[in-house]
Design a protein around this nucleic acid. Structure first.
Length: 313
DNA sequence: TCCCAGGCCATGT
DNA sequence: ACATGGCATGGG
C-alpha cells in the first residue's frame, strides 16, 4: 500500500472539525493567523505542520520515516513547495492585467496538493453539477461506508477517521448501497464501480499514467475513456492527482472569469467539447502553459471569493 | 417558484 | 457541430 493512501487533511490542528476532500486545494491562512498549526495524517500517524513566511512547510513532528521515506521530504513534495508562484503566468501578464494581478496578491499562498490519484479520480467523479457541500458529503460517506475506520489521539482527544476505500473495496461495492454515497445517483455509482474495476484489473494504471511524460491531450483522452469522466474531470485528475500543473480544468467558474476578466467571447458560448479546447488554448496565451492549471486555480479561488463571495475551498 | 451549484451523456436536429 | 433534457438535491 503506498504512502498516500491514508492521508487525511484537517483544517486546523488546534480545532479539528472538518476534513478536506481529495481535490480540494490548500490555502494557507495568509491573512492573520499565520502561526496556526495544521495536521495531516499519513499512514495513520498525525503529522503537525506549520506555514513558514515563504509558504514553505515546516514539519513540527520529529523526523519520522515511513517506508524509508522521510516525512518532511514527502510533505514538501505533497505541498508542491518547489513551484515558483512567480512563474505561473505569461511574462506580460502584469502589464496586460494589472488590476487582476494585484487582486491575486492575497492568493499566492495557495498550494495545489499532489494527492493520491485513485482517491482524486473517484472524488472528482462525484463533483458534477452539484454543490460543494454535497460533493463533500459524498466523499465522506464513501469513506465511512467503504473505508477503514481508525482513530488517532490528538491533544488528549480520540479522533475517529476513515481511510479512503481501495479500488478493490469499491469494485466489489453493491450498486444500490453505493448509490447512497453518490447522492442517490445510480449512474454515477455504476461509473465508479466500473472505474474501480478497471484499476483492479490493471486496465487503468494511474501511477504509470502520472509518472510518464505523455502529452497532456493524450493523458486527458485516456482518462476520458472511463464512463463519467469528461474533459473537465480528466483535467482535475491530472492537476490534483497526477501532479500535472499544466492541466487547466474549465468549469462554470473558470468559464465565468475567462469571459469577465479576460474578455473571451468563447466563454460566452456554451461549454461544448469544442469550446472547451478553444478556451484551454486561449488561457495558455496569458498563462505559463506549463503551469496553466496552477495559475488557473489561483484565479478560480480569487473569482469565487472576491466576486462570487463564496468561502469554501 | 426559479435558478444555480467545481458535468457528463444520450438523443435529436 | 450545436442544443436540449435527464440525472439529483439543497440553498439562496
Amino acid at each position: 500500500m503506498d504512502l498516500y493512501s491514508h492521508i487525511i487533511k484537517l483544517k486546523s490542528a488546534v480545532d479539528v472539525k472538518e476534513s478536506l476532500f481529495s481535490g480540494q486545494s490548500f490555502l494557507w491562512d495568509n491573512y492573520e493567523n499565520r502561526n496556526d498549526y495544521y495536521m495531516t495524517v499519513i499512514k495513520r500517524i498525525p503529522i503537525i505542520i506549520r506555514q513558514l513566511t515563504d509558504n514553505k512547510v515546516e514539519v513540527i513532528s520529529d523526523s519520522i520515516t515511513v517506508d524509508s521515506i522521510l516525512i518532511s521530504d514527502f510533505i514538501n513534495n505533497y505541498f508542491s513547495v518547489n513551484v515558483d508562484i512567480n512563474k505561473i503566468y505569461a511574462e506580460n501578464f502584469m502589464e496586460l492585467y494589472p488590476d487582476i494581478y494585484s487582486m491575486l496578491n492575497g492568493y499566492y499562498s495557495l498550494r495545489i496538493l499532489r494527492q493520491e490519484p485513485f482517491e482524486t479520480m473517484i472524488s472528482f467523479m462525484c463533483a458534477q453539477g452539484i454543490g460543494m457541500h454535497i460533493i463533500r458529503k459524498q466523499v465522506s460517506m464513501l469513506k465511512k461506508f467503504y473505508g477503514e475506520k481508525f482513530s488517532i489521539t490528538f491533544n488528549g482527544d480520540e479522533i475517529i477517521l476513515y481511510s479512503f476505500p481501495t479500488p478493490q473495496q469499491l469494485a466489489n461495492a453493491d450498486l444500490s448501497q453505493l448509490s447512497l454515497c453518490t447522492n442517490n445517483n445510480k449512474l454515477r455509482a455504476a461509473n465508479i464501480i466500473l472505474a474501480a474495476k478497471s484499476v483492479v484489473e490493471g486496465k487503468l494504471d494511474l501511477n504509470i499514467l502520472g509518472a510518464s511524460e505523455i502529452p497532456l491531450a493524450q493523458l486527458r483522452n485516456t482518462l476520458c475513456q472511463i464512463r463519467g469522466i469528461g474533459f473537465k474531470i480528466a483535467d482535475c485528475i491530472a492537476l490534483f492527482g497526477l501532479g500535472r500543473f499544466d492541466a487547466f480544468p474549465i468549469d462554470t467558474h473558470v468559464k465565468q472569469y475567462l469571459g469577465t476578466w479576460f474578455k473571451s467571447t468563447t466563454a460566452l458560448r456554451s461549454l461544448t467539447p469544442a469550446n472547451y479546447l478553444i478556451l484551454d488554448a486561449e488561457a495558455r496565451t496569458f498563462l505559463n502553459p506549463d503551469f496553466a492549471g496552477y495559475a488557473g486555480h489561483i484565479l478560480f479561488h480569487c473569482w469565487r471569493k472576491e466576486i462570487k463571495k463564496l468561502h469554501s475551498f
